[in-house]
Design a protein around this nucleic acid. Sequence first.
DNA 1: TTGTTAATGTGATAACTATCACGATAGCCG
DNA 2: CGGCTATCGTGATAGTTATCACATTAACAA
Lengths: 229, 229
Amino acid sequence: MKQKEIKIPEATIKRLSTYINCLERLDAEGFQVVSSELLGESCQVSPAQIRKDLSYFGEFGVRGVGYGTKNLAEQIKKILGLDKIWPTVLVGVGHLGHALLNFTFFREHGYRMVAAFDNDPGKIGREVTTDVIIHPIEKLVEITREERAAIGIITVPASSAQETADRLVEGGVKGILNFAPNKVKVPENVTIRNVSIVSELDNLAYLLSKKHGRRRLTRKKTISRPPKL
Amino acid sequence: MKQKEIKIPEATIKRLSTYINCLERLDAEGFQVVSSELLGESCQVSPAQIRKDLSYFGEFGVRGVGYGTKNLAEQIKKILGLDKIWPTVLVGVGHLGHALLNFTFFREHGYRMVAAFDNDPGKIGREVTTDVIIHPIEKLVEITREERAAIGIITVPASSAQETADRLVEGGVKGILNFAPNKVKVPENVTIRNVSIVSELDNLAYLLSKKHGRRRLTRKKTISRPPKL
DNA sequence: TTGTTAATGTGATAACTATCACGATAGCCG
DNA sequence: CGGCTATCGTGATAGTTATCACATTAACAA
């Protein structure tokens, strides 16, 4: 493995997360050792791709044998920083926010929901099925700072997404996961990830209309012009 | 624009979806015409990238002027197949499923939720805030076929994701959006998109531990080996 | 100890994607 | 109506990511 600050492909990081899942499943199925081929089969990634991805971070396997299932999962977690606890806050306890609060997977992966916020007085203070307390939105900055939350999750309507992001930054979070459909801007030193559910569906729609659609999108040289300006 | 069956980058399709959003916002702000620079500013994509993306499908702008805001949004929708109605079913009316059913954005983008399914008798038949009816899961294949649903959304627990996918395929859907954390397998002729919320968070965790972490991940040549096999 | 086998780790190569730079052109104004 | 300006559309180029092919090596058996 190389020592220089090699740039890791973003796609590699995405895959690492899925490897963990597959490894845990394979482990549960009784595989103490997995080959890149078996793991690849399991998570639909080519064996070569898996080996390459891992090679960016070190050597985790035994030639001629494979990878220790539990060990590899452990190592990948360390790579992704999932061996630490990430204090997290969530803003906007609507349907989606509620869903995320109850998503047990988070806790298992090292994320600790330390607080939630909403501007609906009916929801304030009430504890959900989890032990997370919902605070009024006015306390966002204060509590986020107090709890030293590193990550903020935005599940508010599009119209207030940017303002929410600003407050989270003010509260000192270092990363934001935004589920609102419009992208938000944050300072250099804060990392933002936008999850657009609609985009995913639109992507599907495109693939479907291409494969199963009646006619081609662009058959002629015809140009679609905007109305005269 | 070229006529041959050029391969469109997947990334381009993803961006097109976000362009629609930005265009609608800009339109609401009163911009009847937008330049690639303004649009780029708005959705955080380089102007050249936008022009390139659009050039795969035709010429939509006016040199020296820009793009007609409304027109461009319309054209992109046509490209993505959002000018048609996509009958959609949802399986698993838990928190997340509930959230998606109530997501008005879907309807606005051409997706019509024609039915939902759940195996909890308490939820069956009850209408949610929307006009979607929740059926017992046993009727999935039948109703999906009846309604000619093209898209299926999976929001069931990981353990039953694969079985749900199988039934959706049996019911005749052409595309599946899977929110369960484990990937599912489908036949060649069905398109699958996996949305992994945990992966997104893990990605964030990685970036944060790299930027703000105490120490580097791989400082020495040390190799992490699995326990002797 | 030495040969055999299986599966890793990785340099080289191919494929894909984004960026750049500039030619083309519509609109405007005098 | 001709020159000027703004902005598009796109071929060429640079950068990034995935695939391939094989040398390497741990385990095991005779």
